[in-house]
Design a protein around this nucleic acid. Sequence first.
DNA 1: ATAACTGCAAAACATTTGCATACAG
DNA 2: CTGTATGCAAATGTTTTGCAGTTAT
Lengths: 158, 158
Amino acid sequence: MSLTPTQLDEVRRLFADFLKQRGQRQTAERFAILDALYATGDHIDADTLYMRLKEDGVQVSRATVYNTLELLLECDLVVKHQFGKTQAKYERAYAYWQHDHLLCIDCGAIFEFCDPRLQSIQETVAEIYGFEIAQHALNMYGHCRRENCANRPAPTEA
Amino acid sequence: MSLTPTQLDEVRRLFADFLKQRGQRQTAERFAILDALYATGDHIDADTLYMRLKEDGVQVSRATVYNTLELLLECDLVVKHQFGKTQAKYERAYAYWQHDHLLCIDCGAIFEFCDPRLQSIQETVAEIYGFEIAQHALNMYGHCRRENCANRPAPTEA
DNA sequence: ATAACTGCAAAACATTTGCATACAG
DNA sequence: CTGTATGCAAATGTTTTGCAGTTAT
Protein backbone atom coordinates (compact mmCIF):
# COMPACT_ATOMS: atom_id res chain seq x y z
CA MET A 1 0.00 0.00 0.00
CA SER A 2 3.04 2.24 0.29
CA LEU A 3 4.47 4.07 -2.65
CA THR A 4 8.06 3.57 -3.73
CA PRO A 5 10.52 6.43 -3.19
CA THR A 6 10.51 6.95 -6.94
CA GLN A 7 6.75 7.31 -6.96
CA LEU A 8 6.88 9.75 -4.08
CA ASP A 9 9.36 11.84 -6.01
CA GLU A 10 7.03 11.76 -8.97
CA VAL A 11 4.17 12.96 -6.76
CA ARG A 12 6.25 15.85 -5.43
CA ARG A 13 7.25 16.74 -8.96
CA LEU A 14 3.64 16.76 -10.11
CA PHE A 15 2.74 19.09 -7.27
CA ALA A 16 5.72 21.32 -8.00
CA ASP A 17 4.76 21.53 -11.68
CA PHE A 18 1.18 22.31 -10.79
CA LEU A 19 2.24 25.15 -8.50
CA LYS A 20 4.70 26.54 -11.00
CA GLN A 21 2.16 26.45 -13.79
CA ARG A 22 -0.23 28.45 -11.64
CA GLY A 23 2.40 30.88 -10.47
CA GLN A 24 2.08 29.73 -6.89
CA ARG A 25 4.93 29.29 -4.48
CA GLN A 26 6.58 26.03 -3.55
CA THR A 27 6.80 26.27 0.20
CA ALA A 28 8.22 23.80 2.69
CA GLU A 29 4.83 23.65 4.41
CA ARG A 30 3.04 22.54 1.27
CA PHE A 31 5.44 19.71 0.61
CA ALA A 32 5.42 18.68 4.24
CA ILE A 33 1.64 18.36 4.10
CA LEU A 34 1.81 16.41 0.86
CA ASP A 35 4.37 14.05 2.38
CA ALA A 36 2.42 13.56 5.58
CA LEU A 37 -0.71 12.70 3.66
CA TYR A 38 1.11 10.28 1.42
CA ALA A 39 2.80 8.69 4.40
CA THR A 40 -0.66 7.74 5.64
CA GLY A 41 -2.06 4.72 3.90
CA ASP A 42 -5.36 5.47 5.58
CA HIS A 43 -8.18 7.96 5.18
CA ILE A 44 -7.41 10.95 7.35
CA ASP A 45 -9.20 14.13 8.37
CA ALA A 46 -7.65 17.58 8.23
CA ASP A 47 -7.25 17.99 11.96
CA THR A 48 -5.61 14.61 12.50
CA LEU A 49 -3.22 15.42 9.69
CA TYR A 50 -2.48 18.76 11.35
CA MET A 51 -1.76 17.09 14.67
CA ARG A 52 0.34 14.40 13.09
CA LEU A 53 2.52 17.05 11.48
CA LYS A 54 2.85 18.80 14.81
CA GLU A 55 3.90 15.57 16.51
CA ASP A 56 6.54 15.09 13.87
CA GLY A 57 7.89 18.50 14.74
CA VAL A 58 6.67 20.13 11.55
CA GLN A 59 5.23 23.52 12.40
CA VAL A 60 2.25 24.38 10.22
CA SER A 61 -1.05 26.04 10.94
CA ARG A 62 -4.46 24.53 10.47
CA ALA A 63 -5.23 27.22 7.90
CA THR A 64 -2.29 26.08 5.80
CA VAL A 65 -3.37 22.47 6.06
CA TYR A 66 -6.82 23.31 4.72
CA ASN A 67 -5.43 25.60 2.07
CA THR A 68 -2.93 23.00 0.88
CA LEU A 69 -5.49 20.20 0.85
CA GLU A 70 -7.54 22.39 -1.44
CA LEU A 71 -4.60 22.72 -3.81
CA LEU A 72 -3.95 18.99 -3.71
CA LEU A 73 -7.56 18.35 -4.61
CA GLU A 74 -7.28 20.69 -7.55
CA CYS A 75 -4.32 18.84 -9.00
CA ASP A 76 -5.91 15.45 -8.31
CA LEU A 77 -3.21 14.23 -5.97
CA VAL A 78 -5.77 13.87 -3.20
CA VAL A 79 -9.44 12.98 -3.03
CA LYS A 80 -11.89 14.12 -0.42
CA HIS A 81 -14.61 11.95 1.09
CA GLN A 82 -17.71 12.69 3.07
CA PHE A 83 -18.50 9.40 4.75
CA GLY A 84 -21.84 10.42 6.20
CA LYS A 85 -20.21 12.64 8.81
CA THR A 86 -19.75 16.37 8.81
CA GLN A 87 -16.01 15.95 9.01
CA ALA A 88 -14.34 15.26 5.67
CA LYS A 89 -11.63 12.66 5.13
CA TYR A 90 -8.80 12.85 2.65
CA GLU A 91 -6.97 10.13 0.79
CA ARG A 92 -4.00 10.16 -1.57
CA ALA A 93 -4.95 9.62 -5.18
CA TYR A 94 -1.76 9.06 -7.14
CA ALA A 95 -1.06 5.55 -8.41
CA TYR A 96 -4.17 4.40 -6.71
CA TRP A 97 -6.98 2.73 -8.60
CA GLN A 98 -10.37 4.38 -8.62
CA HIS A 99 -12.29 2.59 -5.92
CA ASP A 100 -15.30 2.83 -3.68
CA HIS A 101 -15.77 2.32 0.02
CA LEU A 102 -17.36 -0.14 2.38
CA LEU A 103 -17.70 1.09 5.96
CA CYS A 104 -18.50 -0.74 9.15
CA ILE A 105 -21.19 1.09 11.09
CA ASP A 106 -19.99 -0.50 14.33
CA CYS A 107 -16.22 -0.16 14.35
CA GLY A 108 -15.61 2.41 11.62
CA ALA A 109 -13.34 0.15 9.59
CA ILE A 110 -13.05 1.17 5.96
CA PHE A 111 -12.57 -1.28 3.10
CA GLU A 112 -12.13 -0.54 -0.55
CA PHE A 113 -13.58 -2.25 -3.55
CA CYS A 114 -13.95 -1.78 -7.26
CA ASP A 115 -16.71 -3.10 -9.48
CA PRO A 116 -16.74 -2.57 -13.23
CA ARG A 117 -20.53 -2.48 -13.29
CA LEU A 118 -20.40 0.94 -11.72
CA GLN A 119 -18.80 2.28 -14.85
CA SER A 120 -21.73 0.97 -16.86
CA ILE A 121 -24.19 2.57 -14.47
CA GLN A 122 -22.35 5.86 -14.79
CA GLU A 123 -22.56 5.73 -18.56
CA THR A 124 -26.25 4.92 -18.48
CA VAL A 125 -27.01 7.76 -16.08
CA ALA A 126 -24.94 10.22 -18.10
CA GLU A 127 -26.85 9.19 -21.21
CA ILE A 128 -30.31 9.42 -19.68
CA TYR A 129 -29.83 12.75 -17.95
CA GLY A 130 -27.54 14.37 -20.49
CA PHE A 131 -24.86 14.86 -17.87
CA GLU A 132 -21.15 14.95 -18.27
CA ILE A 133 -20.18 13.07 -15.12
CA ALA A 134 -16.90 14.07 -13.51
CA GLN A 135 -16.81 11.75 -10.54
CA HIS A 136 -18.84 9.57 -8.26
CA ALA A 137 -18.83 8.30 -4.71
CA LEU A 138 -20.36 4.98 -3.74
CA ASN A 139 -20.35 4.20 -0.04
CA MET A 140 -21.81 1.04 1.42
CA TYR A 141 -22.55 0.88 5.12
CA GLY A 142 -22.97 -2.34 7.05
CA HIS A 143 -21.69 -4.66 9.73
CA CYS A 144 -18.34 -6.30 9.31
CA ARG A 145 -17.91 -9.72 10.84
CA ARG A 146 -14.57 -9.25 12.49
CA GLU A 147 -14.18 -10.87 15.88
CA ASN A 148 -12.85 -7.70 17.43
CA CYS A 149 -15.36 -5.31 15.87
CA ALA A 150 -16.13 -2.63 18.43
CA ASN A 151 -19.76 -1.78 19.18
CA ARG A 152 -20.87 -4.97 17.52
CA PRO A 153 -24.61 -5.30 18.13
CA ALA A 154 -25.91 -8.46 19.76
CA PRO A 155 -26.72 -11.00 17.06
CA THR A 156 -30.44 -10.98 16.25
CA GLU A 157 -31.73 -14.52 16.63
CA ALA A 158 -32.93 -15.62 13.21
CA MET B 1 -44.12 13.78 -6.10
CA SER B 2 -46.59 14.74 -3.40
CA LEU B 3 -48.11 12.19 -1.09
CA THR B 4 -51.85 11.75 -0.81
CA PRO B 5 -53.57 12.86 2.40
CA THR B 6 -54.11 9.19 3.20
CA GLN B 7 -50.41 8.51 2.86
CA LEU B 8 -49.57 11.48 5.03
CA ASP B 9 -51.90 10.12 7.70
CA GLU B 10 -50.15 6.80 7.43
CA VAL B 11 -46.79 8.49 7.90
CA ARG B 12 -48.00 10.29 11.01
CA ARG B 13 -49.41 7.06 12.33
CA LEU B 14 -46.10 5.28 11.78
CA PHE B 15 -44.29 8.01 13.66
CA ALA B 16 -46.87 7.91 16.46
CA ASP B 17 -46.50 4.14 16.77
CA PHE B 18 -42.75 4.40 16.80
CA LEU B 19 -42.83 6.95 19.60
CA LYS B 20 -45.36 4.99 21.61
CA GLN B 21 -43.40 1.81 21.26
CA ARG B 22 -40.33 3.55 22.60
CA GLY B 23 -42.20 5.27 25.40
CA GLN B 24 -41.50 8.69 23.91
CA ARG B 25 -43.93 11.54 23.81
CA GLN B 26 -46.00 12.67 20.87
CA THR B 27 -45.53 16.41 20.86
CA ALA B 28 -46.97 18.99 18.52
CA GLU B 29 -43.44 20.08 17.61
CA ARG B 30 -42.45 16.62 16.44
CA PHE B 31 -45.43 16.27 14.15
CA ALA B 32 -44.99 19.80 12.84
CA ILE B 33 -41.43 18.95 11.86
CA LEU B 34 -42.53 15.71 10.23
CA ASP B 35 -45.21 17.56 8.28
CA ALA B 36 -42.88 20.33 7.19
CA LEU B 37 -40.35 17.84 5.91
CA TYR B 38 -42.96 15.86 4.06
CA ALA B 39 -44.40 19.04 2.57
CA THR B 40 -41.02 19.55 0.91
CA GLY B 41 -40.54 17.43 -2.16
CA ASP B 42 -36.95 18.52 -2.17
CA HIS B 43 -33.80 17.74 -0.24
CA ILE B 44 -33.60 20.14 2.66
CA ASP B 45 -31.08 20.99 5.35
CA ALA B 46 -31.92 21.30 9.03
CA ASP B 47 -31.60 25.06 9.20
CA THR B 48 -33.75 25.73 6.15
CA LEU B 49 -36.37 23.43 7.62
CA TYR B 50 -36.16 25.35 10.89
CA MET B 51 -36.64 28.68 9.13
CA ARG B 52 -39.46 27.36 7.00
CA LEU B 53 -41.30 26.31 10.14
CA LYS B 54 -40.72 29.72 11.64
CA GLU B 55 -42.08 31.43 8.53
CA ASP B 56 -45.18 29.28 8.77
CA GLY B 57 -45.67 30.55 12.29
CA VAL B 58 -44.68 27.27 13.91
CA GLN B 59 -42.50 28.01 16.89
CA VAL B 60 -39.81 25.35 17.38
CA SER B 61 -36.17 25.56 18.33
CA ARG B 62 -33.26 24.42 16.26
CA ALA B 63 -32.43 21.86 18.94
CA THR B 64 -35.85 20.28 18.56
CA VAL B 65 -35.48 20.17 14.80
CA TYR B 66 -32.20 18.27 15.09
CA ASN B 67 -33.54 16.02 17.79
CA THR B 68 -36.67 15.18 15.81
CA LEU B 69 -34.74 14.56 12.60
CA GLU B 70 -32.72 12.03 14.55
CA LEU B 71 -35.90 10.24 15.61
CA LEU B 72 -37.24 10.29 12.07
CA LEU B 73 -34.03 8.73 10.85
CA GLU B 74 -34.34 5.99 13.43
CA CYS B 75 -37.80 5.02 12.28
CA ASP B 76 -36.82 5.23 8.61
CA LEU B 77 -39.26 7.99 7.72
CA VAL B 78 -36.39 10.22 6.68
CA VAL B 79 -32.99 9.68 5.13
CA LYS B 80 -29.95 11.85 5.60
CA HIS B 81 -27.50 12.74 2.84
CA GLN B 82 -24.03 14.16 2.87
CA PHE B 83 -23.59 15.48 -0.64
CA GLY B 84 -19.93 16.34 -0.36
CA LYS B 85 -20.62 19.33 1.87
CA THR B 86 -20.37 19.62 5.61
CA GLN B 87 -24.04 20.46 5.83
CA ALA B 88 -26.36 17.46 5.76
CA LYS B 89 -29.56 17.29 3.74
CA TYR B 90 -32.68 15.38 4.63
CA GLU B 91 -35.30 13.74 2.47
CA ARG B 92 -38.55 11.97 3.23
CA ALA B 93 -38.35 8.22 2.83
CA TYR B 94 -41.89 6.87 3.03
CA ALA B 95 -43.49 5.60 -0.18
CA TYR B 96 -40.41 6.64 -2.02
CA TRP B 97 -38.35 4.20 -4.00
CA GLN B 98 -34.77 3.59 -3.02
CA HIS B 99 -32.80 5.81 -5.33
CA ASP B 100 -29.45 7.45 -5.82
CA HIS B 101 -28.43 10.98 -6.70
CA LEU B 102 -26.95 12.88 -9.58
CA LEU B 103 -25.74 16.38 -8.71
CA CYS B 104 -24.77 19.28 -10.90
CA ILE B 105 -21.48 20.76 -9.76
CA ASP B 106 -22.39 24.10 -11.33
CA CYS B 107 -25.96 24.84 -10.31
CA GLY B 108 -26.53 22.38 -7.47
CA ALA B 109 -29.51 20.72 -9.13
CA ILE B 110 -30.24 17.25 -7.79
CA PHE B 111 -31.68 14.44 -9.89
CA GLU B 112 -32.61 10.96 -8.80
CA PHE B 113 -32.06 7.68 -10.50
CA CYS B 114 -32.28 3.99 -9.81
CA ASP B 115 -30.27 1.23 -11.43
CA PRO B 116 -30.80 -2.44 -10.63
CA ARG B 117 -27.13 -3.19 -11.24
CA LEU B 118 -26.33 -1.48 -7.97
CA GLN B 119 -28.18 -4.20 -6.12
CA SER B 120 -25.95 -6.79 -7.79
CA ILE B 121 -22.86 -4.85 -6.84
CA GLN B 122 -24.08 -4.66 -3.27
CA GLU B 123 -24.57 -8.42 -3.12
CA THR B 124 -21.15 -9.08 -4.59
CA VAL B 125 -19.45 -6.76 -2.13
CA ALA B 126 -21.36 -8.22 0.81
CA GLU B 127 -20.27 -11.69 -0.28
CA ILE B 128 -16.61 -10.83 -0.80
CA TYR B 129 -16.12 -8.91 2.42
CA GLY B 130 -18.48 -10.88 4.61
CA PHE B 131 -20.50 -7.78 5.36
CA GLU B 132 -24.16 -7.45 6.13
CA ILE B 133 -24.88 -4.26 4.21
CA ALA B 134 -27.55 -2.01 5.65
CA GLN B 135 -27.54 0.82 3.15
CA HIS B 136 -25.57 2.57 0.50
CA ALA B 137 -25.18 6.01 -1.01
CA LEU B 138 -24.16 6.54 -4.61
CA ASN B 139 -23.65 10.13 -5.68
CA MET B 140 -22.60 11.14 -9.15
CA TYR B 141 -21.26 14.63 -9.73
CA GLY B 142 -21.14 16.32 -13.10
CA HIS B 143 -22.35 19.07 -15.37
CA CYS B 144 -25.98 19.22 -16.33
CA ARG B 145 -26.77 20.62 -19.74
CA ARG B 146 -29.61 22.91 -18.81
CA GLU B 147 -29.70 26.25 -20.57
CA ASN B 148 -30.12 28.16 -17.34
CA CYS B 149 -27.52 26.26 -15.35
CA ALA B 150 -25.81 28.76 -13.06
CA ASN B 151 -22.02 28.84 -12.95
CA ARG B 152 -21.84 26.87 -16.14
CA PRO B 153 -18.19 26.79 -17.19
CA ALA B 154 -17.29 28.07 -20.63
CA PRO B 155 -17.50 25.22 -23.12
CA THR B 156 -14.05 23.80 -23.77
CA GLU B 157 -13.45 23.96 -27.48
CA ALA B 158 -13.11 20.39 -28.71
C1' DA C 1 -47.16 13.34 39.51
C1' DT C 2 -43.29 12.50 36.86
C1' DA C 3 -40.39 11.49 33.40
C1' DA C 4 -39.64 13.29 28.98
C1' DC C 5 -39.41 17.34 25.99
C1' DT C 6 -38.71 22.11 24.74
C1' DG C 7 -36.31 26.48 24.17
C1' DC C 8 -32.55 29.03 24.94
C1' DA C 9 -27.99 30.06 25.01
C1' DA C 10 -23.61 28.32 25.48
C1' DA C 11 -20.41 24.92 23.93
C1' DA C 12 -18.30 22.04 20.70
C1' DC C 13 -16.76 21.11 16.23
C1' DA C 14 -15.18 21.91 11.43
C1' DT C 15 -13.81 25.18 8.39
C1' DT C 16 -12.90 29.87 6.58
C1' DT C 17 -11.28 34.51 6.75
C1' DG C 18 -8.59 38.90 7.76
C1' DC C 19 -4.51 40.79 8.52
C1' DA C 20 0.29 41.60 9.92
C1' DT C 21 4.50 39.26 9.10
C1' DA C 22 7.62 36.20 6.48
C1' DC C 23 9.63 34.55 2.45
C1' DA C 24 9.96 32.36 -2.54
C1' DG C 25 10.78 33.82 -6.90
C1' DC D 1 11.68 43.74 -4.29
C1' DT D 2 7.02 42.13 -4.75
C1' DG D 3 3.29 39.59 -4.41
C1' DT D 4 2.07 35.17 -2.28
C1' DA D 5 1.89 32.35 1.69
C1' DT D 6 1.95 31.72 6.51
C1' DG D 7 0.35 31.83 11.35
C1' DC D 8 -2.64 33.40 14.42
C1' DA D 9 -6.84 34.39 16.20
C1' DA D 10 -11.26 35.76 15.30
C1' DA D 11 -15.35 34.74 12.61
C1' DT D 12 -18.50 31.64 10.46
C1' DG D 13 -21.43 27.84 9.94
C1' DT D 14 -23.31 23.50 11.62
C1' DT D 15 -24.57 20.53 15.20
C1' DT D 16 -24.66 19.22 20.13
C1' DT D 17 -25.29 19.94 24.98
C1' DG D 18 -26.87 21.56 29.71
C1' DC D 19 -30.35 23.10 32.22
C1' DA D 20 -34.55 25.43 33.97
C1' DG D 21 -39.07 25.42 32.92
C1' DT D 22 -43.05 23.02 30.42
C1' DT D 23 -46.05 19.34 29.15
C1' DA D 24 -47.78 14.66 27.54
C1' DT D 25 -49.02 10.68 29.64
